[in-house]
């Protein structure tokens, strides 16, 4: 298959766009799609100091790479969750550090064990929440903490179109209108101690981010998924959407973009209780201690 823009060998066939692209033109298009998401959804400006949440996987490293290529001031944060199964944390940290060194970029590392004397598996055992739920609380808290301490203006995560479309599908199937109202490429901060969170890869599929990472020579954790993600609903949703996409190319992007145009039709979340500061860490909460501090106490 030849590139639709030149005569070179294509490395990817984008059926939804009826486009086959060589390495050079694919990378160019990838950057264009990130720029489009940033522009259409007002995600970032060049004045922002961006803190990129880095896991060592393809999406976060691809995101960091493309933001650096586009000239953003983007530094990384890796949180060592202490997941020893399959050597997950150790391997993923190694990839994140290697990328940072190769790019000459700054990576901040937070080790949960050193910082708080806990790991995600340990916290999950103590809690009634799911492992993913616990992990989400921890990561959000630490991202906001580091952003506040070090003066970053926005947080960026590697959520891609497959992530967004699968969450959208799951929330629609359950008619979780509160979550539907809150799903967006940019989540505004509701308190001065928090930071807005953006998803610049939201118009790109996982297949595209994987292709970008490989084409750019980014050494990521191939197929080493978090061991706790086995059986996750998100994977079921993604597989279902991929089957639909095969038969009807363009479905995922249309589904997501059209939802964003209609998001306001879903009920707004109830007013938050008045925010007070957590008695331990000082971050906003509606109870005496925030969810994070209740977990690690």
């Amino acid at each position: 298959m030849r590139c639709s823009k030149c005569s070179k060998q294509a490395i990817i066939h984008l059926r939804s766009y009826r486009l086959a692209l060589c390495e050079e033109h694919f990378i160019e298009r990838f950057k264009q799609m990130v720029k489009r998401a940033i522009k259409d959804y007002r995600l970032l400006s060049k004045k922002d100091r961006v803190l990129v949440a880095v896991s060592g996987g393809k999406d976060s490293l691809a995101l960091w790479d493309v933001l650096l290529e586009l000239g953003y001031e983007a530094e990384g944060l890796y949180i060592d969750l202490g997941i020893k199964r399959e050597n997950y944390s150790e391997l993923s940290k190694r990839k994140a550090l290697a990328f940072a060194e190769q790019r000459g970029a700054r990576l901040r590392v937070v080790d949960l064990g050193e910082e708080y004397g806990v790991t995600i598996p340990k916290l999950a055992r103590r809690s009634t929440r799911s492992v993913c739920g616990v992990c989400g609380i921890v990561k959000r808290h630490e991202m906001n903490r580091i952003a506040l301490e070090e003066g970053y203006t926005v947080l960026a995560t590697g959520h891609n179109l497959d992530d967004e479309a699968s969450v959208l599908l799951a929330n629609l199937l359950r008619w979780n209108t509160e979550l539907l109202a809150r799903q967006a490429p940019r989540l505004e901060a509701w308190h001065p101690k928090l930071r807005p969170k953006v998803k610049p890869l939201c118009l790109l599929t996982e297949r595209e981010t994987a292709t970008y990472a490989i084409a750019r020579g980014i050494d990521y954790v191939y197929e080493l998924e978090c061991p706790f993600s086995e059986g996750a609903t998100s994977i079921t949703m993604k597989e279902a959407l991929n089957r639909i996409e095969e038969r009807s190319p363009g479905t995922k992007l249309y589904f997501y973009r059209e939802f964003l145009k209609r998001r306001s039709m879903f009920a707004l979340p109830e007013e938050r209780g008045e925010a007070i500061e957590c008695e331990v860490c000082g971050f906003p909460t509606t109870s005496q201690r925030c969810a994070f501090c209740r977990l690690v106490a």
Partner: peptide, 23 residues
């Protein structure tokens, strides 16, 4: 990287990498 129409030659090794991540 190869597209879906690529035909394997004798002795070649095709590596298929899952792009799906979860959790």
């Amino acid at each position: 990287l190869v597209t879906e129409d690529y035909r394997l030659k004798e002795g070649e090794v095709l590596e298929i990498i899952s792009a799906i991540s979860g959790g």
